[in-house]
Design a protein around this nucleic acid. Structure first.
Lengths: 331, 331
DNA sequence: ATTTACTATGTTACCGGTAACACTAAAATC
DNA sequence: GATTTTAGTGTTACCGGTAACATAGTAAAT
């Protein structure tokens, strides 16, 4: 036997008023007489009233929630971005609806449909690759969209991030400037950003008349994969004197493997990562890395999105949050 | 000028039927005549119909969504749990509503209210510490609740996890068995589990007539904090020959600091962590750790929750998923 | 004293689906 | 051929808030 959860009507009945008055009392207490107000609050407490967002969603007033789609929740990068987003949306009273899609546009479509079915007021997407149906849905939904983590491609409406191509170019150039010649790019799973970094890597190598070499694993990123990739480097490209890794996990894994093999870092092998996670900063030597402002990107994206939800004209199509080249101790 | 997003009525108008028929057609196509069915699907495609969950939520049929509250999304442990939960809920057609509360019961209360306002059919909580209001809300909501990550305390209704006290006891016992005498416990931020692990640590030490010592940082867990804590160990407790760390991050950070200081691991210092993350397995020597079945816990919790949502009687109050002591190369 | 303004409350309707029931026409059964 | 069944579709009402408007009662203004 389950008791229904209490509604405004239940409170109204208790105090002999209508649910409208109770509704008003809860959202604008001073429009209700003091004696009634007190009784209403007491009754609400007594029945254990829990607000219900469903009617809000239904009457197409704003739902006060925004959708966020990230490829993966276990990826530290996106966890940081989410923290940034929430830092802005939470104080603004917006609820965050999170979904992930495992780097697959098809799953992104599914997750997007799910989010939209909750009448979110806006969405933040983490990729630029969308299915035609996804695009269609976004269009019919008619809500603001912000794409994050990249400023290289043309956004649907607006994007917030940094330029992966340029960042990779800069880091690899720094490696070359320090005398490295046989720099190999270590990649995992081919997502958009992995490819953009490869592009930057190639541009840098070719600009110096060097021959680019990429090794990639189809597995998802992990320290172990970094180690495995380094093994391949040693076997198949013994002349290598530097590796540019698509992220810090791979770089740290590769570093561990160097340690095991007695390869001196940076003496024999320079290592550079991407994102500047704590692990790289805590180890000795400090890992060279492209430090990306993940949390700031989240905040800026949320800020831009909410502004547009609230009808303000969008500031810029592309908001570039930049990055920092940290040369650490492994170059 | 914004166009409203299409509803069933819009489709109905296009094909000259009522929205009821369209509704039927979409959920049970063979109850509608073939010619009409085809026209309806075409029209739906044409207008770009996106289902709307709001009415579902409102007419308090099951919302087909469950709420999950985790202390932190950036904590790899909970990210893994979420993956496990979703592995079960997604195929079952349940939508996951995620919130985090930064280890604070007060914020948990807020997040919980938010979740319940979406009429979730059940919730998974990550702590046993709840405010009176939280308890009240859960009661009035009258939905199934599963608490995860601990089997030590009495659950509200049902819990899925492992015994932190016993796990810590086992690991520390293993350290003592291998000849360590001055084992120090390194803790960060005092959450429930940190304290339970301390309890197990103390029990093991005292069982062998050894004196327990705990060092803790109030900062949130990170590799850097592990390094800082090891520094304190060296300064204030120079006799220490082993450290039991509340998690792998701290352990790895401490290991790095040992490296820097030329402290031989495990020769001079044994190190044990908790959770068995990839980083510990990838480094050399392999980090000793208590391996927790995080993903399996998520799956089991989701399974137990959905079973109860669907009216099946709950199997057991406490589902213990166990753990594995991995001695690695640092003991 | 009458009009005006304002305060506190009530009434109605609606958001978008769907359950429950009603209805019609054609098919099946006797 | 009359009756029952069934397949296909329509009608109504409802979920729980709140916007918009209506109303009653009281205080202020003329």
């Amino acid at each position: 036997m389950k008791k229904k959860r209490p509604t405004l009507q239940d409170i109204a009945d208790k105090v002999g008023a209508t649910k409208m008055t109770v509704s008003r009392c809860l959202r604008a207490p001073d429009t209700v007489s003091e004696s009634l107000r007190e009784r209403i609050f007491k009754a609400a407490e007594q029945v254990g009233y829990i607000p219900n967002r469903a009617p809000d969603l239904l009457s197409r007033a704003t739902s006060h929630s925004i959708g966020v789609l990230v490829p993966s929740l276990t990826n530290q990068v996106f966890a940081d971005v989410i923290v940034g987003i929430e830092a802005f949306t939470e104080p603004a009273g917006y609820y965050l609806m999170l979904s992930h899609y495992g780097y697959s546009p098809t799953l992104e479509e599914r997750s997007l449909a799910s989010l939209l079915s909750y009448n979110v007021d806006g969405v933040i997407l983490s990729d630029h690759d969308h299915t035609p149906r996804s695009l269609r849905m976004l269009e019919t939904a008619g809500i603001p969209v912000v794409e994050i983590m990249d400023t290289h491609r043309q956004p649907l409406q607006q994007s917030v991030g940094y330029d992966n191509v340029k960042a990779a170019f800069d880091m690899v150039s720094a490696m070359i400037r320090r005398g490295r010649r046989q720099v190999v790019y270590l990649a995992v799973r081919l997502d958009e950003r992995t490819q953009q970094r490869e592009q930057g890597y190639r541009q840098a190598m070719e600009a110096h008349g060097l021959i680019p070499t990429t090794l990639h694993s189809t597995q998802r990123s992990s320290y172990s994969v970094g180690a495995a990739l380094l093994e391949q480097v040693v076997i198949n490209h013994p002349d290598t004197d530097g590796i540019f890794c698509t992220n810090d996990d791979v770089a740290v894994g590769a570093y561990f493997e160097c340690q095991r093999r007695g390869i001196d870092v940076p003496g024999q092998m320079a290592i550079a990562g991407f994102h500047g996670h704590d692990i790289g900063q805590a180890m000795t030597p400090r890992l060279a890395s492209v430090i990306t402002p993940r949390q700031a990107i989240g905040e800026a994206a949320a800020k831009a999105l909410l502004a547009r939800i609230q009808g303000e004209p969008s500031a810029a199509d592309i908001i570039d949050m930049g990055y920092t080249i940290e040369t650490g101790g492994t170059l």
